[in-house]
Amino acid sequence: MKEAYFSLEGAAKTYGSKTIFQSINLSLNEGEILSIVGPSGTGKSTLLRCIAGLESFSSGHANLQGKQFDGYKVQDRPVGMVFQQPLLFPHLTVLENVIYGLKLTMSHRSAKAEGITYLKSVGLDEYLNEYPHSLSGGQQQRIALIRALIVKPKLLLLDEPFSSLDPDRRRELRDWVRMLLKEERMTALFVTHDREESMLLGDKVAILAEGKIQQTGDPKHVYENPVNEYAARHYADAIVLNETIYALNHDVKWSTSHETIPEDTISLKAEWINQTYQYGESYAHVKLVETNRRCIIPEKGHFSYVKPGSRGFIWVKQRDVRLFDKEQVNE
C-alpha cells in the first residue's frame, strides 16, 4: 500500500482530565474528500482546529506528503479552513477578502488579477468591490470558500460550512462546493452532523462518536454494514438489538397486537407516534418502550386507526437479524 497523502496517527486532545477525542487514525489520498460525521459536541470542530494549528493535539501526529507538520505554526501549515460562519473581514471588499491570503506570495497587482480571474470563473465577479455586509449568507460563504481555495492549500478543512444557511441555500451550495472541490482536485476534510450532507460531499465517510472514529469507509458500505452500535445509530438506519446484533430498519415491521406477529421473529415493545409520507413511501414513527429511542421504519400498511401513544410491537424475522462485524472497522 502506498503512503497516504494525508494522515493522522493516534491523535488525541484532552482538556485537563476531560478527553475530547483519542487514538484518531485517518488517512486520505490526494484529491479525496472525507466526510467526518457524528453528533454535535463530539469534538469534530476541535479535531479540525488541531489539524489547522489553532489548537494543538495532546498527543499524536499529522502528516502530509510524508512530512509531519503538527509542530508548525498556523501560518506555516499547508492547510486551509472554511468555518461555520463565512467570517469575511467586514472592513475589506470582496476582492480584498479573496486575495488576503495571496499577499505573502505575490504582488498586489498580480494578486488582484488572480482574484478577479477566480471570481469571474465562478461567476461572482459582480460583487468585486462590494463590502461583505451587502451580500447574502450564501454568497458570503461562497466568497469564503474561494478565499480559502485561492491560496491552494494542500488540505482544506471545512467545518460545517452550510450550517448557518437555510435548507434551500444549503442544498444549492453543497453541489456547488462539491463541484468546485473536484474541479480543483482538492483534498478535503469535511465535518458535518448531517448524514445526507456527508454522503453528498464525501468520497469516504468517517463516523466520529464517543471521542473515537467508529468506522471509516465507502458511504454505501458503511450505511449497510455498521460495525457497532455507534455506527449503527449515527449513520445506518438500523435498530440496535443488543451489543452484537442489529436489524436494518427496512426489515422491521409494526404490529398493533402480539397475535399478528409471525413466528421466528424478534419483537420489541413500542409506542406508536405517527405516520409520514415521503418520496412515494410511507413511514411509521415509533418509540421503543425499553430504550425510549425513536425509529422510523418503512411501513406499507395503513394504520390510521392507531391512536398516537398506543402500545404495539415492532418485529424482525430471525433471518434478517445481522451481526456487527467488529473485525471490519475500516474497509
Binding site: 489553532l54 501560518q75 492547510v79 468555518f83 460562519q85 473581514f89 488576503y100
Partner: peptide
C-alpha cells in the same frame, strides 16, 4: 476570536 483565527488560516502572522 474567529476573525483572528480566519486571518491566521490565510497565512497571516
Amino acid at each position: 476570536s474567529d476573525l483572528i483565527d480566519q486571518s491566521r488560516m490565510l497565512k497571516a502572522g
